[in-house]
């Protein structure tokens, strides 16, 4: 069975991103193709902000997701509308809005909700972390 993870809880106000990470790690370790993709929506898109620097004695959640994604070739999607609204911007969007900076971390990609619909229809189960 293949899963899609929908993560909506803020990385700062909830444990959604932490719990989803633990679930994804356990599932992928048990069965490497058990998760087709992770879609971050609402405040969860803040996970992809490259400029955020957690204190050194705390978990670097963004890095933990990047490591997991690279180890298992797991796509990490951020909803583009939710991300741009919150200042998580890739190079293309930065040019579109005529900004001098971009802030999207490597390993994450901005995608529309249509990508979520495609994931929804091509996997057996979706699990929301909020």
């Amino acid at each position: 069975m293949q899963h899609t993870l929908l993560v909506t809880g803020s990385p700062y106000q909830s444990k959604a991103c932490h719990s989803a990470l633990c679930f994804a790690r356990a599932a992928l370790t048990a069965q490497p193709d058990s998760i087709k993709g992770v879609f971050f929506y609402e405040d969860a898109v803040l996970i992809g902000n490259d400029l955020a620097q957690p204190p050194r004695d705390e978990i670097n959640l963004k890095q933990a997701w990047q490591t997991l994604a690279s180890e298992f070739n797991l796509p990490l999607y951020l909803c583009i509308a939710a991300a741009v609204r919150r200042g998580v911007i890739n190079e293309t969007e930065s040019k579109r809005y005529e900004l001098n900076h971009h802030s999207l971390s490597s390993g994450f990609q901005l995608e529309g909700l249509g990508t979520f619909v495609e994931l929804m229809n091509s996997t057996q189960k979706i699990i929301q972390f909020r």
Partner: peptide
């Protein structure tokens, strides 16, 4: 959250879900 929930509903419906 309410707005983003409604946005998701509208996108799902747009994709004929």
């Amino acid at each position: 959250a309410c707005k983003e929930g409604l946005d998701l509903a509208l996108v799902l419906a747009t994709f004929e879900q």
